[in-house]
Amino acid sequence: MPATQSLVTIKGRKDGLVLVMNEACAYRDLLIELKEKLAASTNLDQNGPVISVKIEVGNRYISTDQRDQLKQIIHSYDHLKVEAIHSNVLTYAELDQIKEQEKIVTMVRIVRSGQVLSVQGNLLLIGDVNPGGVVSASGNIYVLGSLRGVASAGQGEDGNNAVIVASIMAPTQLKIGETISRNERNTAEVLTERHRFECAYLDDHIGKIVIDHIQATIKKGNLPFTFNKM
């Protein structure tokens, strides 16, 4: 190991430290140097405020165990806090997971009382959620219709940023992440809200564009051809 070439570079920034790590050397060497560098840094004031640390590993794949290991080393200094570990490399499994979380699942149906519709990713429901029905997604929920049942969005990681969108918002309960809100309105009052959703489609039989009530369209099965029906 040439002593002149530094494997770990510590950069000070306004918002904390950035540790830039060599992406070509052995991981073991990286750990050794990291420990040495941290130990040698006399300017890391032991009594100062908490400093946030970002780690840039470049084009190196680091596993969850390795991430934990890095965090452990840095957290052995009380006032250092790892904010993020950034790597340019993803495994296929991780990529699939991200894709799963970001995809929009389109469903054309009515979620009736007692039925549960649960998806990974974002849910686009074309149809109603009736009282007693439940829709749940790891991401956002979009209802093109009336939401009168229970909707739980953000049921994956970092769920607090999820949103619930509905054309008619009259839910019995909403849940985003771990937070629940309930509707204080009277059930009968909610039921009286009126809406009329219309859907335009090309009718093969008459060769014209037809506009029909969306519930009628769902019933006729005219919608599913462009959507992945589940």
């Binding site: 009736r112 009382s113 007692g114 009736n130 009282p131 007693g132 029905g133 009968a188 019933k219």
Partner: peptide, 22 residues
């Protein structure tokens, strides 16, 4: 409301019975 709610549930169950027309 209670009766409509139960009817909704039953319709959901009937929709799963493939041999029964809507």
């Amino acid at each position: 409301i209670s009766s409509v709610r139960d009817a909704d549930r039953i319709i959901g169950l009937l929709e799963q019975e493939k041999q029964v027309s809507p």
